[in-house]
Amino acid sequence: TEVASSGEFPPEYLIKHPLQNTWTLWYYEPDRTKTWEESQREITSFDTAEDFWSLYNHIKTASELRQGCDYSMFKQGIRPMWEDDQNKCGGRWLINLDKKQRTTDLDNFWLEILLCMIGEAFNEYSDDVCGAVVNIRPKGDKLGVWTSNADCADSVMEIGRKLKERLRITSKTTMGYQVHKDTMVKAGSQTKNTYTL
């Protein structure tokens, strides 16, 4: 390009930063005429840090979404649902936020989770991360980080510890890991935490 040939900027600034994985953003909006699965819309996929920011800067923040809506960001090829092959033996680190935290913490936490995922902050355990979901709900918003194997305690705990550190989670916010299979059968009532931090 012109800029590159002028020598004005180091050429590395013109190269996008490739991510380890390609990620897909999903958006869920409740629609009575559709099934839950049909209401999950795949928005777009990206595989560079710059393309992540183009997308992030272009869409509403999580706190601006209507109640009942979700954003999900998953590795390409993994659908944001329990039934997916990559999720069916897994679970999620769940962070429940109280109503006030929608204005104080929600957007910061969600961005931090996204940065952890695209930046591969979980090191070798990053391979076990499937994606993350933010649920905007009247009773309190939820953030979930989904991993592929609930039986891998080392991996689940390391991912949880890193999340807690990066989100600077204090005692006012509890973090528990719930196995999807437990959540599926316990729909509507409290699911037990298999791991806690």
Binding site: H17, A49, E50, G119, A121
Partner: peptide
């Protein structure tokens, strides 16, 4: 190796005009 980036590096790219 794994293509990993720390949070400060990623945050710097958010509004970097040269990264577009």
């Amino acid at each position: 190796g794994r293509k990993s980036y720390d949070r400060e590096f990623l945050l710097r790219l958010q509004f970097d005009p040269n990264s577009k």
